[in-house]
Amino acid sequence: MIAAQARHVGWVLRSNPITAVAAVAATLLCFIALIGPSIVSYDPIASDVASALQPPSAAHWAGTDQLGRDVLARIVYAARLDLAIAASAVFLSFIVGALIGSVCGYAGGRIDRFVGRLVDVLMAFPLFVLAMAMVVALGNRVENIVIATAIINLPFYIRFARAEVNVRRDAGWVEAARAGGEGHLAIVLRFLLPNVLPAMAVQISLNLGWAILNAAGLSFIGLGVKAPTPEWGIMVAEGARFISTGKWWLVAFPGLALMLTVLCFNLLGDGLRDILDPRMRT
C-alpha cells in the first residue's frame, strides 16, 4: 500500500515537473521555518547601530537594516512566524468551513439558505478591509490576526464544501451507508467529508499563499505584528522608507521571500489534488 502510494506520488511529480519544483521549494521553506533560526548567526532583534544600512556583503548576505540588524536573519525568523500565522489561519477556516459547508450541502433547506445568505453578506465586504476592522476591534495580537485571516477565508471553504457535498449527497454509496445503519451526521463526517477533502486540498494550498499575503499586508499597514518582531510585511514597510535613497535590499529580499512563498503554494495546489485523489491512483 505504502509502496503503491509512493509510486503514485512519484508519477504525479514526474509527469508534472512544476509541481515537483514547488514541492521541493515548499519543503525547503518549511525546513527553513523550523530549523532556520537555530542556524543563522545573527540576532534578529538586537540592534547594532555601528553597522547600519550596509549593502549585501560576505558578512551580511542580504545587508543590514537601519538598526544594523542582519536582513537575512530577520527573513529567516520571519518565515517561521508568517508560515505559522498562515497555516493556523487556513487550518482553522478549513476545519470550520468544511464542517459548516458540508452540513449545509447535505441538509439543504432552511439552514442552507440561511448560511448561504450569511456568506454572501460576508463576501460583500472588501475582505482585507474586513480583516483590518477585526484586528482593530479585537486588538493588535497575533492570535487576532489568525482569527481575522481565518474568518475572511471562511466563505470560500463553506461554498466549496457545500458544492462538493451537494453533488454527492444523493450518490448510491450515501444511500447505501444509510441502509447500512448510518445516521445523517455520521454520513457527513465519515463518508462525505473524506471524499471532498482532496478537492479542498487545492484550495488549502492556494489559500496558504493568500493568507501569508494577508498577514504581511496587515503588518505592512501597521495593524499586525508589532515592530521589533521580524515579519515580512513589517520589513517591507520599514524598508520602503529607505528605497528612495537607494537602499534596495531592505525591501527586495523580504519582498522576494514573500513572493516566492506565495508562488510556491499556488503552484503546489493542482499537484496536491492529483496526489490525494484515490481515483488518480492505479
Binding site: W173, N195, P278
Partner: peptide
Amino acid sequence: FQDPHESLNP
C-alpha cells in the same frame, strides 16, 4: 443500487 460504481464509496 443501479450503478455499481456509483454505489461504492470511492
